[in-house]
């Protein structure tokens, strides 16, 4: 059991993250949202065990999504991983203080992301 929502506006990055998740095993299911809006629409439709989100996106940004999830009774326990770049330290720190569980820095290795996913789900 592991429903993971990927929120990322780059389709290639999205499908790469999906591949990483699928490699984790059959008990993991990857769901994709291209924008923050799509993520907001997806949240009530499925029980998610983890959300992986980019920060810089059109419509709402990753920080706003984290704030929404962490302030919502129904979703606040879903762990969140920020996918970020070394340049956006400032934004990464803001995301962590808003309640995200972990971050990984692009470009990342498959094992790094798998490690982060396993750790976040254990919590």
């Amino acid at each position: 059991m592991g429903n993971i929502l990927i929120v990322e506006d780059s389709s290639t990055t999205r499908s790469l993250i999906r591949t990483v998740i699928e490699d984790l095993g059959d008990e993991f299911d990857a769901f994709e949202a291209e924008t923050g809006f799509e993520a907001l629409k997806a949240l009530p439709t499925e029980t998610f065990d983890l959300i992986i989100t980019d920060i810089n996106m059109p419509d709402i940004n990753g920080l706003e999504l984290i704030s929404f999830v962490k302030n919502n009774e129904a979703y606040k326990d879903i762990p969140m991983i920020i996918v970020t770049t070394e340049r956006s330290e400032e934004d990464r720190d803001r995301g962590m203080s808003l309640g995200a569980e972990a971050y990984i820095t692009k470009p990342f290795k498959a094992e790094e992301l798998q490690e982060a996913i396993r750790a976040a789900l254990k919590k």
Binding site: D9, S10, T12, T13, L16, N56, M57, P58, T85, R87, K106, P107
Partner: peptide
């Protein structure tokens, strides 16, 4: 901002494919 995001996305993308030259330039 949108242009910044495009470059940001391209950087992330090319990084995943090990295209260091493109990564550095977009970075």
């Amino acid at each position: 901002n949108a242009l910044f995001r495009d470059m940001h996305t391209l950087k992330g993308l090319s990084g995943l494919f090990g295209l260091q030259g493109i990564t550095e330039l977009s970075h």
